[in-house]
Structure formats: structure tokens, C-alpha cells
Write a protein that binds this DNA or RNA. Sequence first.
DNA 1: GAGGTTTTAGACTATGGGACGAAAACCTAT
DNA 2: ATAGGTTTTCGTCCCATAGTCTAAAACCTC
Lengths: 182, 182
Amino acid sequence: MRVDDGGLEALLRRVERLPRESLAGAVRRAIDVGRLAHLEQLETRILRDGTLTTVYLGLARPGTELDGDWRVVGTRTPPDERELVAAAQARLRAKLSYTNLGFALAPEVFTISELRDVYVAALGHDVSATNLQRVLLRRGALERVDGLRAPGRTGGRPAALFRFASQRLEVTDEFAALRPPR
Amino acid sequence: MRVDDGGLEALLRRVERLPRESLAGAVRRAIDVGRLAHLEQLETRILRDGTLTTVYLGLARPGTELDGDWRVVGTRTPPDERELVAAAQARLRAKLSYTNLGFALAPEVFTISELRDVYVAALGHDVSATNLQRVLLRRGALERVDGLRAPGRTGGRPAALFRFASQRLEVTDEFAALRPPR
DNA sequence: GAGGTTTTAGACTATGGGACGAAAACCTAT
DNA sequence: ATAGGTTTTCGTCCCATAGTCTAAAACCTC
């Protein structure tokens, strides 16, 4: 999945596993994994056509070039595949709030407003830019980058630039209740 | 897994899937699923012996009778299987803090102290009984049951009885940051 | 009845995060 | 250049969740 044109776009691709090949190996063989900012395994089930299928979720940054074997998920996608995509979306949305997973959907360097747009597209609802900044900064997920982004045609204060401190999935432990007493 | 003798005990079992059988169907055929209070799918991978394996995590209440085909995980368990068990434990511990998953490890009716013991065994660290009660009550996960438990040999105030309001997995949505603004 | 034990309830505090508004820094138009 | 509009940024206030602590309640045994 990736954020594109202000929305969350889902792309599907089927990979056959060769004999004696690992699951991750099959994915790496068929897909240029280096272009994906994040990859994780989801559910395994038997689709309606009888194939034993393990679903992976990959996230790509905006503007990433992907080769042409991907099918964009739309109204013509079969129901069982759309079900899987919906589950993947739900998982992505949940993780966005308690992990740094935004790094995989955002450009490498961005302003808070641009990051906000990414979260709005992925979450499907409005997000406060100031809260987003404070939450992610407090967690140490974001860090400043030197320089400012010049304002656009309509004017406005130049925006500071940020990037994610880590490019790997990290879970915020602060949302966990029932911590051990001191 | 289940809580037993103040510790978290892990039991393993292997199930072969028959041709044209669903994954969940294979599990139901081989295991008396009704005795498990919770069952969820975990990771799929290829074990060292080359078998494509989908791991399920089942939780049983204390005192549940299980038939004899289970292998207790211990020091003689192969490393790749122990790895899976460790991942399952980590997942269980994380979910205990933001879901009502305790229902699957605790007896149907219990005192707060007994519930505390279950959480201590599962989480591996101390838990404050008063916090546990307040957190789960506020979430609506617990509800009172009529009656009191008589104190034991050493005396003490009789304890109120509780049960989980739901016997199905429910996720607390309050831990989610970046909620939509009103 | 005194002393010990367990449970329960309440007050206090710390922290994460939502809501809001003002100031800063830029643009365009007059 | 000066006024007005825009976007970004910062700070303050407030609320909800949850950790800490203490005292009271209700039982036991001696």
C-alpha cells in the first residue's frame, strides 16, 4: 500500500512459492523488496480457488516506482481478496497510532503538514498537525532536519523539515497498561 | 498456553492438514476447540524440517482437561519451536495490556487477587491489584458477581467475586493516539 | 479483645494527548 | 510600504488514564 493523491492506494500481487523455497525467499525473488519501506506477514488462509495463501503487507513511500505486475484494488477485485485488503488496512491504521510506522508511508524528509496529509490519507480521518508533531516528537520518532521548506504560491510561514529517526518498525511501549510497579 | 502453578505453561501440538481442508478445519478436527477459551492464528513459516507450518495460539483456563497428545515446552524442545513459542508469549503479553484477553487465562469467576496472580504469571512481573481492578473495571471488561469468597486459613476480608463481561477478544480503543478531532 | 492478614476504597500525582488561541513568518494586492 | 490573508509554530489549558500510597473494612487466630 501507499499514499497517493491524498488517498491510500492498495496494490495486489500474487507470488508462487517454488519447491524448497522459504516464504520470505519467494517474496524477495518476485518483488524488489528494496523499494518497499516496510514488509510484514499477515494472515494465512485458503482462498476460494483453493490455494494456500500467506498474505504479506508491503508499504511504499510516495513516488516509488513499482513495476507493472501489480493490480490496483478496486471494485472489480474479488471479494475474498478485498477482505484481505480490508484487514490489512485495519492493521495498518491501528499500528500507525502506537508505532513509528509512518516512516514507511511518508517521504524521507517532510514538513509536519505533509506528514499530516499522509496520516489523514492513511487513517481516513482528520488529524491535528500540532498534536501529531507533539506526539511523535515526544516519542522520539521524529527529528529535525536542517533547512526550511519555502512557502508555496499562497504564502505562509516556511515550514521546518523533519524525518523519522528510525526506518524500522518500533513499538511505543507507553500505551501498555499494567506496567510493573517500581 | 495456560497459567498453571503460578507460571505460564506452554503446550505444543502438531496437526497435519488433509487435502482440501481449511486451516481452521484442521485445527477443529484435531483439537477439542471448545475447551480452549481463545484461539488465534500467528505466524506461518517453514520449519527446519521443511514443513510449511501455520502456528496457532490457544489459551486454556486453569484446570482445563487436555488430552495427552500435547508436548510440554521445555529445555528439550527444538530451537525453532521454542522460537515460535517465545514469539507467541510476547504477543500474549502485549495483548493482555490493551485487550480483555485475561478472560481466556482466568477462571470464569475469580477474586481480584486471583486475577492478579494470573496476570503476574502471564506477564512475568508484579502487578498492582488495585490498578488491575480499576483499569479493567473502567474499561468495562470486568463485572461483579453476587457473593463473596470466604477467606482462607490465614484470615482476611472476604473478597468480592468478578467475571469478564465478554468471553471474546475485545480491543481497548483508548490506547490509540491520534484520534479524530471532534 | 488484641494483633495479624487480606481486601477495598479513596486521595494524590504523573503523564499522554486533545482543544484552542496567539504569535511568527511568509505571500499578494493595493 | 502597508494591510490583509495563509501557513506554520509555540504555548497554555484541560481531561482521561493509570501508578502510588494510605487508611479503613472485614475477616482470622490466639
